[in-house]
Structure formats: C-alpha cells, structure tokens
C-alpha cells in the first residue's frame, strides 16, 4: 500500500468539504474492495475519507411504501434487519450471499453501490427493486445510476447517503457464485410490484448490471418460471473468463432467472 492521509469526519458536511479541500480523495466505506486494491498497489489515493463515524449514514427506516437504508449500513445489518426480513426478504437473502460472514461485518451497501463492480450483488437488487440512490446532492433512480462497469452517475466528491427501496409484492434473488472469488458469476434479481416486473442481472454483462425487458414483459403477463420459456439470452455482450465464457454465462442467466422467479412465485 502506498502512503496516504487519513481523515475521519463526523458529518456529511465535513466529509463533503474535506473532499473539495484535499487532493486525490477516495471515500472509505467498508473498505473491502478499496483496501485490497490499495494493498495490491492498484489504487493510490493521496487521501482517504473514512465515512464510518457519520451518524447520518447509518440506520434502516421502514415506511408503508419503502425501506430506506443508510449508506454505511453493513451487509450483516441488512441480513439481520427484521424490517427488511418482513418487507423485502429477498434483499436480506441477497445480502447474506455477499462475500462471507466476516466480509458482511464490514462491507456496506453504499460502498457496493458506489463501486458498481460488475459482479457485485447490490446493483442487481437496486435495479430490480427500482431503488432510488440518495446522495448529499440529489436523488438518482437506479436506472440512471449504474452506467457501466465501475461507473456510476456520482460526481466527484458526491456522497451516497441512503438507498431507498420501494417494497415489492414479491421478489427473489438467485445467485450462481464464481467458483473462486464467490462474486456473482451470474446473479438475477426479480421483483414484482403491482403489474410491474423488473428483472436485473449482475455478473454476466460486459457492461455491468442490466435488465432484461423481454423477460420482464413476459413475467408481467404471467409471473411463473414457464413465462421465460423460449427467451434466449444471446452470448454477445457477456463477460468471459476461465471459469465461465460468454455462452455459459448467457445460459446461466436463463437458469438463474427461472430459479429467481420460482423462488419469488413461491412467496405467493
């Protein structure tokens, strides 16, 4: 790791000000992507701003219509939140599939969403649940937020404060883990809200998380695995590595979509 300056503000305002004052800044959330990258000397920020002590970034709130999660909320907190378990159980189940128990004690929703790793789980949940990403400056719809691998609508110095998820009628996440890294080789999040069905895929796409309109349309007519029969996901635009080439990933999108729908449908 290269040397850096460390800052630990206690308010969003302080953090935002610091970000404009010091050079070459990275915000430190759970650190479970950033720190390994820095250890490998693949990232070399001059300053780290640790967001952990900002009270406004913590906490889970439930309203009649939505669940709103503070950006510094750890995966384990989402897993264990009774509000989330009751309202969007699929979200808690998804969080329990991130990394491993120790990672879930540190990794945060805000960090995951801001990083937009093409194999991360949260982007699929955000997109399928039609979440709103709330920053210190504005609110951004998930459809507008994720803009390709490791790329988001966030501007320089902009801080995610909360992520708000409308409560669906039913939803589920099916993940096929990468054998080595345990990130999503293919992860499919499906959510139904009224007549609106959204289905998002992570891990597979060369440009990161994406929705599958053809599946969504078919599912909005008939929310069952057999609604996906005959929908072929082409390998073009899929990721490939030694563990899974584009054709296999494309195939898995179909399989995982069916399994996610099955799981969601069984919620009645």
């Amino acid at each position: 790791m290269y040397a850096f300056e460390y800052h630990r503000p206690t308010s969003i305002g302080q953090a935002a000000t610091l970000a404009t004052e010091v050079e070459d800044v990275k915000f430190l959330a759970g650190g479970h992507t950033l720190l390994p990258t820095m250890k490998m000397r693949l990232a070399a920020p001059a300053s780290l701003i640790d967001l952990s002590q900002i009270a406004e970034l913590h906490g889970i709130e439930r309203s009649a219509e939505s669940i709103t999660i503070g950006a510094m909320t750890k995966h384990a907190e989402v897993v264990n939140s009774s509000e989330i378990r009751e309202s969007i159980p699929a979200l808690a189940e998804m969080a329990e599939l991130i990394g491993d128990p120790h990672v879930r004690h540190r990794g945060t929703i805000g960090g995951s969403v801001a990083n937009n790793d093409p194999s991360a789980d949260y982007p699929a949940a955000c997109l399928a649940l039609n979440a709103t990403i709330i920053t210190n400056k504005r609110e951004i719809a998930a459809d507008d937020f994720f803009q390709g691998i490791f790329t988001t609508a966030l501007e320089e110095g902009e801080i995610i404060t909360r992520v708000s998820f409308p409560i669906p009628s039913r939803a589920a996440y099916a993940k096929f883990r990468h054998p080595a890294s345990r990130y999503a080789l293919v992860g499919v999040f499906v959510a139904e809200r009224g007549n609106d069905v959204r289905l998002a895929v992570t891990g597979a796409g060369a440009d990161g998380v994406f929705r599958v309109p053809e599946m969504e349309q078919s599912l909005s007519r008939h929310f069952a695995p057999d609604a996906l029969e005959g929908i072929i996901i082409p390998p073009e635009g899929m990721n490939g590595d030694i563990h899974a080439d584009a054709a296999y990933r494309a195939h898995l999108v179909g399989i995982m979509a069916r399994r996610a729908v099955q799981a969601a449908a069984s919620r009645g």
């Binding site: 460390y6 650190g31 720190l35 640790d50 384990a76 120790h102 004690h105 540190r106």
Partner: peptide, 14 residues
C-alpha cells in the same frame, strides 16, 4: 464481530 484483520486499517479500529 468477526472481521478480516487484513482488510481493516488500524486507524479504523480506533
């Protein structure tokens, strides 16, 4: 809580 001490800065454990 169990954490990986290789992925936490000492300063974060203040």
């Amino acid at each position: 809580q169990a954490v990986k001490a290789c992925t936490v800065l000492a300063v974060q454990a203040d």
